[in-house]
């Protein structure tokens, strides 16, 4: 009888543990780990980068457990919609189109878009000087939209790729003349690497808010205002307490938050 009571008590304690565990359900964050320095794979397979560090800092600030889910960029919003993930923290720009299907926090950083071409190429008027040139962009990105709506009608040949890494391969191989992407990403992911030798920024900063949005935010599901508000508060908190600056200084030597 005593044994039975003990067993019962054990079962009860296990059960209550399970209930507590269910309350602390981890927040699943979607990320594409092919976007250095924001997110990339370390040699041991773990994710590293600015997005990853910011995400972990926010989770620590909100006192929740977070679980990172890797996914290709154009699959992130569909995954969010079907509840495979709860938030997207993958350098996603806040745009009107995306706002229709997801809810955004306010920005956690903002940096301009730029062209990268063979070093020494001077571009003043993008539309006329890029005519007939091969431009690579990441499919589904804001740069893709800008290229499709502004550059393609002007005669630029636009090719779309699944990730920026493939664009770098084709730039080095000479299949592409230029790529349009985030300046910080291009600097650290390509220009600073061996593969990026002989290439440089060309042309102006692209900042038209119609295409390039209000900065980079974290996306959550449309009705999930609770998580959005918690994330917003956490972004403000890490900005205020110096954690943000600490992470920023690890990757950039300028103010990535923008004004």
């Amino acid at each position: 009888m005593k044994k039975l009571a003990l067993l019962g008590a054990m079962a009860l304690s296990i059960l209550s543990h399970a209930v507590v565990g269910a309350e602390g359900k981890p927040v699943r964050i979607g990320i594409e780990a092919a976007y250095p320095p924001f997110a990339s794979k370390a040699p041991d397979g773990s994710i590293v980068g600015f997005d990853y560090d910011i995400g972990n800092a926010l989770c620590a600030e909100m006192k929740v457990k977070c679980q990172w889910v890797e996914q290709e960029f154009d699959g992130l919003i569909p995954a969010l919609k079907v509840r495979k993930i709860d938030a997207i923290l993958s350098s996603m720009s806040i745009t009107e189109e995306r706002k229709r299907s997801v809810e955004f926090t306010h920005k956690y950083y903002n940096s301009p878009a730029k062209l990268v071409m063979k070093a020494g190429t001077d571009v003043k008027d993008v539309k006329t000087e890029l005519k007939g040139k091969n431009l690579g962009v990441q499919r589904g990105s804001i740069h893709d939209r800008f290229a499709t709506e502004v550059l393609e009608p002007a005669g630029v040949k636009v090719s779309r790729y699944a990730s920026q890494n493939e664009i770098y391969l084709d730039l080095s191989a000479g299949r592409l003349d230029a790529t349009l992407a985030d300046a910080t990403l291009l600097e650290d992911g390509f220009l600073k690497t061996d593969a990026g030798k002989g290439f440089a920024f060309a042309g102006p900063d692209f900042t038209d808010p119609k295409y390039f949005g209000e900065g980079i935010g974290i996306a959550v599901r449309k009705n999930d205002t609770e998580l959005r508000d918690k994330l917003n508060a956490a972004i403000d908190a890490i900005r205020a307490n110096g954690t943000y600056k600490q992470i920023q200084d690890k990757y950039f030597n300028f103010d990535i938050y923008g004004n």
């Binding site: 154009d74 569909p78 499919r139 589904g140 893709d144 090719s159 779309r160």
Partner: peptide, 15 residues
Amino acid sequence: TLVDITGAARTVNSQ
């Protein structure tokens, strides 16, 4: 980078 039937589907999906 070729936009065949599947490429068209991927483009439409990302838009």
